[in-house]
Design a protein around this nucleic acid. Structure first.
Lengths: 354, 354
DNA sequence: GATAATCCTGACATCGTTGTCAACGGGCAG
DNA sequence: CTGCCCGTTGACAACGATGTCAGGATTATC
């Protein structure tokens, strides 16, 4: 009874090459050749195999093949972002996907919420699945734990954050320069009382922006002690509360810098709530949807997430294609978009320098 | 020379269980037991194995194991959305990821731009990777091609679109009812001249919204012929142009319904450009970031993408856990958020019904 | 017509892991 | 002391595919 192969019709088992081979009356290896478009198969044989494959709805098992294949490529990429829900990360993700899809590469994405523990787990989950490369918005202080993997030849590209404790490719915005330019923009309007609303201090990018902003203010003659620096604002709600407290305080800022998109949203809410949106200057880092339709429009240092994503993907694929040049750090410049909020001057009597 | 196993120190080759076994002085199967936490391993042996694994930076190959394992689970999910760049899709994605991560399941996401060809390719790419389940925002007219896969036991859940040509689980917003309620909301303010700005007619969801909107207008005594129905607006630029043409036309609408977030953004731009944002009513389907800070605030029929994503993931996991009940259609209701733009009355003299 | 080159095909080992089964050794009951 | 049980361990086959190699058929070459 069981000596014949399992040919029960309509069987719901997933067909394998063996079954396609049986149905087509050829050897498994011949099916493999046809499926992979290898040369030297008689057209008539190929047709029979394709017919059989189609009639069984056969889908090759990429991972089984990969196990034996010499190139050992899963055609899979792992992407770590703060959250797939964040518009910036979404744009990065899309650009990477666009670069990958043409090569038949699928993308895993994982949200970290900038939690170092989740980073380790997510990286391990990717490596267990043998991704061909990693693109990481890292959340950890130090990524030396990736060293062995890097030595094994897995391309690792850091995006939106510089690596630390490891030499690897990186693609990031000009955080320092962009934040500095934002500061200069506000200084030029005559502001002297600033607030800096920053993301988690543990995030390298956030520290760069802070440094850029404060150094530029220093060059403009504003002592750091006069700047209200508030950090660790990781979502819009916290940012809103923080700015509300400042606005209600004894010496509210005349100009506000918000260091990322969620913080900008929170700041906008706070200003609106206190009716201060027309007399308090605001520049945000990273662009925000509908920023141009608000009144006043929101001035931002726009990043170019598509460029970041595309460039990071190109780096990964270049490495996979054999590029063994030293790690490269690509800096993508930012663009100041003036829409009104950043051009608000300080109230009269407070604009002149001492 | 080659009789000894490859033990060159610092070798950059990826370690396998065999190498861990050699280093620990045990059989491969024992390593497997330790790595998978199977019982009946002497503590001392387990320690030696773990030490060896750690010192080699060993990561098990999930796919090799899966090949032999009886449950045949890759712990991987495939998600198809219109674009990972779209805020709605991002929220759905995040909710699915949150449900999956606890089970050790990783998520592939693919953007379709609502192109049926890309759908077929992306599904094939997922199936070749043997995802455990599919969550699809389908772009095709008919998904009967998934029938064999469904029979094989792969859970397939449609999200944000109803399946056609196949019986499968589906989770979607109340598109018809939500759009109808938007129409009623505008009718109640006395509007009689409407514009409907719709997404691609090929999208089932878009057709439902159109049907809901127009039927409700019909019940309100507004003949369909009096409604400016413009469809196939797939991005904000096209939506902006379309509404600009209407506003510049002989008989501009006093109330506008935009059928998804990108269209809403385009409509907002058009109204603003013509300075009509304070006297033309607007209700959008799907919420938009910062909608509450615009003047007037943007009234929307908010969807609940987190609920959609979470519910879809729950359906997939329930199926994987053995639920064989008939396919279920889950409808997630929508929520009207009044912020001003939808409460604008028609200009005097046009508000009364004939 | 003989020989070589080429095309087509299949048998077999193998990739890294797990399921099965059997063997070994020590503890314990009879 | 014998026999049984159980905890521990490893040998081996197998998962679904591809690389290697060899053999038979066909065609080209002299």
């Amino acid at each position: 009874m069981t000596s014949l192969s399992n040919l029960n019709p309509g069987s719901s088992a997933r067909p394998t090459m063996r079954q396609v081979a049986e149905l087509a009356g050829v050897a498994v290896k011949t099916v493999s050749r046809v499926i992979n478009g290898e040369p030297n198969v008689a057209p008539e044989t190929a047709r029979r195999v394709l017919d059989a494959a189609r009639s069984l709805d056969y889908q090759p098992d990429l991972h089984a093949g990969n196990l034996r294949r010499s190139d050992r490529r899963t055609r899979t990429l792992g992407l770590l972002v703060s959250s797939v829900d964040n518009p910036f990360a979404g744009a990065v993700h899309r650009a990477i996907e666009d670069a990958a899809v043409g090569r038949g590469v699928a993308v895993f994405a994982s949200s970290l919420d900038d939690d170092p523990d989740r980073e380790r787990e997510a990286v391990a989950a990717f490596l267990r699945r043998r991704v061909d490369g990693l693109i990481l918005t890292t959340a950890s202080e130090n990524q030396a734990y990736l060293e062995p993997e890097l030595r094994r030849g897995t391309p690792i590209v850091f995006i939106d954050r510089e690596p630390s404790g490891i030499e690897a490719d990186a693609v990031a915005s000009d955080n320092f320069g962009g934040a500095a330019r934002a500061a200069e923009h506000l200084l030029a309007r005559g502001h002297r009382r600033f607030a800096y609303l920053g993301d988690l201090h543990s995030i390298q990018t956030a520290r760069e922006r802070r440094r850029g902003f404060l150094e530029a203010l220093g060059h403009g003659g504003v002592p750091v002690d006069d700047v209200a620096v508030i950090e660790d604002l990781h979502d819009s709600e916290r940012a809103r509360e923080a700015l509300l407290r400042l606005l209600d305080g004894p010496n509210p800022p005349t100009a506000v810098f918000s260091s990322q998109n969620l913080v900008t949203v929170g700041a906008l809410h706070a200003l609106r709530r206190r009716g201060r949106h027309r007399d308090t200057a605001l520049v945000g880092f990273d662009d925000v949807e509908l920023a141009d339709l608000l009144e006043p429009g929101v001035t931002v240092m726009a990043q170019h997430p598509e460029d970041l994503g595309r460039t990071a993907a190109e780096r990964v694929f270049a490495r996979l294609d054999g590029d063994t040049s030293p790690p490269r750090r690509v800096v993508v410049s930012t663009t100041l978009i003036t829409r009104g909020s950043g051009e608000i001057p300080p109230p009269p009597g407070q604009s002149t320098r001492p």
